[in-house]
Design a protein around this nucleic acid. Sequence first.
DNA 1: ACCAAACATTACGTTTGCGTAATACGTTAA
DNA 2: TTAACGTATTACGCAAACGTAATGTTTGGT
Lengths: 146, 146
Amino acid sequence: MYTLRHDVNVMFEGVIFMDKRMRIGELAKRAGVTQRTIRHYESIGLMPPGEREGKGQHYYTEESIERLRKIDQLKKLGLSLDEMREVVQLYFIDPSGVQSKRKALDILRQHLAEANQKLNEIQQFRGEIQSLIEHFERWFEKREGG
Amino acid sequence: MYTLRHDVNVMFEGVIFMDKRMRIGELAKRAGVTQRTIRHYESIGLMPPGEREGKGQHYYTEESIERLRKIDQLKKLGLSLDEMREVVQLYFIDPSGVQSKRKALDILRQHLAEANQKLNEIQQFRGEIQSLIEHFERWFEKREGG
DNA sequence: ACCAAACATTACGTTTGCGTAATACGTTAA
DNA sequence: TTAACGTATTACGCAAACGTAATGTTTGGT
């Protein structure tokens, strides 16, 4: 009966690769989220639960970090956790069937369109702000400037 | 003792200007929101409550519509109702003092920076989606295309 | 083997942004 | 004036996205 080691060292041609297995605390820190957030994402199927032996603790990989970052990015774009589920899958699951690849393309094109839409909205907003700013600046120039 | 008229007609050089006083139902329809939404905005100080005589009903103007539209726009940009309060003021209040004009400029510049930030994020996202799409398209070309 | 940290699980709490009655007036067209 | 409909006010409801205990189990170090 052997015990689980927390970190594994591999020697290869004189170089030591230390593959420290990451637990939820480190994952949370490195991804800039709370443990609760991670567990929440796991509970709603947005993140796969980290690997574990039986009923023990969960261990995560670097990919888990990227996944959390991607989720964060999508949140900034205004997607709800529910809405982003599909897209996140596309980034981290290799769809093996032709069918799923077609579906992936559809979803991606749709999200591309939405992104373009959002770009327009923001650009318009920025334009409005800029002219407001210029308006104020001219006002100050007239009063204070020489 | 006179009664309140719901609509007022003004004749000027043969043209009739009908200045129908708008109540919350019409405002809601024309702005594309619910009455509940309007009342909610009023209750948190995001919208000024429409004018009224005593305890009667509220009457709104065209500006109320624009205000609701502006709120909608800011929501799409991801601002919370709380966050957008200041900006909305800037659009619809004429700051009379120099002090408030300076503050307005500050806020506007800050929001301009945030808008630029958001633009970058979305552009990056769009880039990622595009390369994913191209990846899938190449895959299909190799399999099906001639 | 033992203890302090870190983790797992469960469950109730919180904020935001309204929805949805319920009840009581106000307004208008007939 | 009176029925019918639009409003005002109050209050409870709800989904999303976690926060915050509380309690029990694992793990890593000595």
